[in-house]
Design a protein around this nucleic acid. Sequence first.
RNA 1: GACCCUAUGGUCUAGCGGUUAGGACACCACCCUUUCACGGUGGUAGCCCGGGUUCGAUUCCCGGUAGGGUCGCCA
Length: 448
Amino acid sequence: MKPRVRFAPSPTGYLHIGGARTALFNWLYARHTGGTFILRIEDTDAARNSQEAVDVILNGLRWLGLDWDEGPLTGDATGAGKGDRGPYFQSQRKENYQRRVEALLSRDLAYEHEGAVKFKMTREPVTIRDLVVGEVVRKLTDREESDPDFVILRSDGQPVFHLTNVVDDLEMGITHVIRGEDHLSNTARHIALFRAFDVHPPHYAHIPLILNADGTKMSKRDTGASLTNYVEEGFLPEAVVNYLCLLGWSPKNNREKMALAETIEAFDLPQILRHNARFDQEKLLWLQGEYARELGDDRFYELAVHTFAKAGIDTNKFPLSYVKAALDTCKGKFKLFRELPGYAGFYFIDQIEYDAEAAKKDFVPENKPRLEKLREAFAVAPKFDAPTLEAALKETAKVLGVKAGVLVHPCRLAVTGKTSGPSLYHLLEVLGKEKVMQRIELALATMS
RNA sequence: GACCCUAUGGUCUAGCGGUUAGGACACCACCCUUUCACGGUGGUAGCCCGGGUUCGAUUCCCGGUAGGGUCGCCA
């Protein structure tokens, strides 16, 4: 029998980065085994759920490229789903839960208590055979000792997580429950419920949690906890996916940057680690740089133009050839797309601002005659392309008896306002003679 | 408080009784480049502590410590 796995988030606000990884591991396992990946929305808490949160989850999974074989087609809970075990929103499955509760009630495995229905939990320790953690014998805690039973139907008639989760896993034919380790203790209850329904529980694989860089747990307050944060920062989904794969799972062969196909091939439950992992932004950033450098041209242009637009810079006002030439000088030189407007905005802005500290250092009186000489050399250059300009600058430096750097820095500052950026000679060529001469003139004027 | 999980450089990890403890990120130095990156070379840095078992423990067992999780009419 092919595995059937599911990701079952509750739409209470955002897609947690840990949840994204849980989804990823489930998806990888399904793809590795040729099984089925199911998305089920656990929206039983009407007070905390929202339509927006459902969309955040759906869009987040799509952004990551985690397509589901069964689940919602849209964020509309009452809308059609994909697959024959739906609906895939728990809010639409009330009758199932009601029927199951009645079955337990009639068999004396549950009872009413203050308007709610409680399940008669076993008093014996429950053994959980976990595919990741191993055999866990879960005993009752002292508080459970005094009252081991738990509510499965609230006094207002709404079913509770433990019940809905188990009923749906059962009815949707889930074979492997791959979820966060925070559910390990709950699993005893779930196993007891499966037994009450006279079925064998699915296989369990509890994966370790993702912690903050300082080892504390990630809460909603931490900006890095939300997947949306990475989308907005300008990360590439393939970098995030690759990084997430490496958190709590290892291919065991020292591979770090892995193509998705390779990861699918290698992924399996036994290689999942048992201990929590800290989220390392630096390593994610490294992978981001790796993927950013090898981005296809079309996708690179598209993402770049979009990023400029978000920053209020309309690149469509410029000829396509100019935009592409400008972007070509930037590719592979920055990591996060969020950096791009600051890195290459000078191509599309007339009023550039000089880096204050650099201006103090480079726009000094003794540099004025030097920059004037450079302007003249550029003015009479036979061609305005990178090799010619480089030769002109170096020749000028030689005549002045200074190192090339003495001209390079003020020149870069004059035309870009920055101390770093694309290759100077190439950016001059792209910018064009008119703008370059204008900007050098302007810089000269500030140096009096 | 009880119950459960975990423990290799700063971080992610390989290791499954005998290794000069390997890789990656980060960091440092040098090279390349007279920007910034990229790339290259070299380097600093690790088996939580204490008991066992064993000829021999990073590795197996027990205890401690530390971190994390759970004990809701949240999921």
